[in-house]
Design a protein around this nucleic acid. Structure first.
Lengths: 219, 219
DNA sequence: ATGAAACGGTTGTTTTTACAACAGAAAGAA
DNA sequence: TTCTTTCTGTTGTAAAAACAACCGTTTCAT
C-alpha cells in the first residue's frame, strides 16, 4: 500500500495532505487494495456501494449496458481520480452503472462511514479530506453537465465538434489525443460507431480536422 | 426572510436543523432574498457564481441555449431545492448554464465562503449543513447520471419510455404528472417537439400509455 | 512467425429524426 | 365577451442515424 502514497499525494482527495498524514490515514480509513485485470468489473449495476474509491493504476470506465446491449460510457477514470463518491450518502441506493477495468488496474477502497465520521487522530487533515471530497464531487458534477451538453446536440457531427472542442480546450492545444478508440468514443457520445466513423472522415475531407488513430488536430 | 423558515426546515440543506438555529444561521450566512418574475434570469451562462441558492417560491429551469437557438433543459428546480452548489468550490469557473424562472419565484442566496468556513455560533449545526450540502450534491450527481441514461437512448420513443418510467417509479404510480409541457419535455430530452408529440400519440394509439396534458398513465 | 481477434473505414438499406408549415383547442388578457 | 397568444397535434419532405455486412489493417498471443 505504501508504494501508492506518492500517487495519493497528487490526488484531488488528498490535496494538501502530506505523505506522513496520508500514511496514517490509510490505516485510520481502513484502506483496502484490489487489482483487476483488463475487462474485469470493479462494481456492477445494482450493487450497493459503500466505498469511496481511488484509482492508483490503470484506467476504468463508468458505463452502463441497456437491455438491448447498447453500451453507454458515462465517464472515464484515470489514475488519481475517484469514483463511487456519489454513493457515499446514506440511502443513496444501488449503483446505476458498471465500473470496468479498461486495462489492468489497481484500486484503493476507503470506507465511506470512516471518511465522513471524524476520527481522533490527524483530525485536521481528516476534515480537509472531507472538504476535498466535496470539491471533487462538485467538479464531477460540472463535468457531467458538460457531457450532457455534448449529448444534447442533435447530430453526430455536432456531438463530435462539441466533444473535440472541449478536449482541445482542456488540453490547451488544437492537437490532442483522446482516451477512447472509435467504439468507445461512439459509446461515450451514444451514437453508432460506423456512422460516427463515416462522419469523422467526411469532416476530415471537408478540412475541418485531421486524425491518426486517437490523435486529433482541429483546423 | 422569517416567513421562509418553515420552507427551509424541509430542505435537504437544512435537514436536521431546527427553526431557531436556521434563524440564527440566516444572519450568520448572510442570506439574501431575491424575487424574479416568470421568464427572468437568476444566473446567466458565463457568470461567476459565488452563492449557494435555495428556491423558496416558484420553480426554475437550469438550461442552456446553443448558438443555433436549440434549448437544452438540464434540470428543473422545485421549492426547497438548491442550485449553484456545483460552483461552490474555489476555481470552479463560470456557470455553464442559465437559470431562469419558469414562474414567479423567490430565491435565497447564501455566500459560499461563509458556508464552507465554520463560524463561531451554532457550529454544530453549521457542520451539519456542510454535510447536508455534500449529500445534496451527490444526489444531484446521481440524477444527472440518470438523465444521461435517458439521453443515451437512440430513439425518441426510447427516451420517452426511459424518462416516463423513471417518473412513474419516482412517484410510485403508473399515473403521474410531469413538470413540463410538450416543448419543455422536448428540450429536456433534446428532441424535436413535433416529432416527440407525434411519437407520443403513436404510443398512445398502440396502447402503451394514455395522457391528458401533462398527466400520464403507463399501461 | 502465424493465426485469431480487435479495430477502423466503407457502402447500401431502412428507420427515424429534424424541420417547416399549418390548424384546432386551450388559456389568458383586454 | 372577443381577440390574441400559447399549446398541442398533424402531415409531408428532406436529412440524418441506425443497422448490417464486409474488408483491409493493426495488434496481440501463442
Amino acid at each position: 500500500m505504501k508504494k501508492y502514497i506518492p500517487v495519493l499525494e497528487n490526488t484531488q482527495l488528498f490535496a494538501g495532505v502530506g505523505e506522513a498524514e496520508i500514511s496514517a490515514m490509510l490505516g485510520c480509513l481502513q484502506a483496502q487494495k484490489c487489482s483487476y485485470k483488463k475487462g474485469e468489473y470493479v462494481f456492477r449495476q445494482g450493487e450497493q456501494v459503500n466505498n469511496i474509491t481511488v484509482l492508483v493504476e490503470g484506467s476504468l470506465h463508468i458505463q452502463r449496458d441497456d437491455y438491448w446491449g447498447n453500451r453507454s460510457i458515462i465517464n472515464m477514470i484515470r489514475v488519481g481520480e475517484m469514483f463511487g463518491e456519489a454513493y457515499a450518502a446514506p440511502g443513496s441506493g444501488a449503483s446505476l452503472n458498471d465500473v470496468v477495468a479498461v486495462e489492468d488496474s489497481t484500486v484503493l477502497f476507503f470506507d465511506v462511514k470512516r471518511i465522513l465520521t471524524v476520527c481522533s487522530s490527524a483530525c485536521r487533515f481528516h476534515s480537509m479530506v472531507v472538504q476535498n471530497l466535496f470539491f471533487a464531487i462538485s467538479e464531477k458534477n460540472r463535468k457531467l453537465v458538460q457531457k450532457l451538453g455534448h449529448m444534447a446536440k442533435r447530430t453526430t457531427r455536432e456531438k463530435l465538434i462539441s466533444y473535440l472542442s472541449e478536449e482541445a480546450g482542456r488540453q490547451n492545444s488544437g492537437t490532442f489525443t483522446i482516451p477512447f478508440n472509435r467504439q468507445q468514443l461512439a459509446d461515450f457520445l451514444s451514437v453508432d460507431r460506423s456512422a460516427m466513423s463515416n462522419e469523422l472522415c467526411k469532416m476530415r475531407d471537408e478540412g475541418l480536422l485531421t486524425f491518426q488513430k486517437n490523435r486529433f488536430t482541429l483546423l
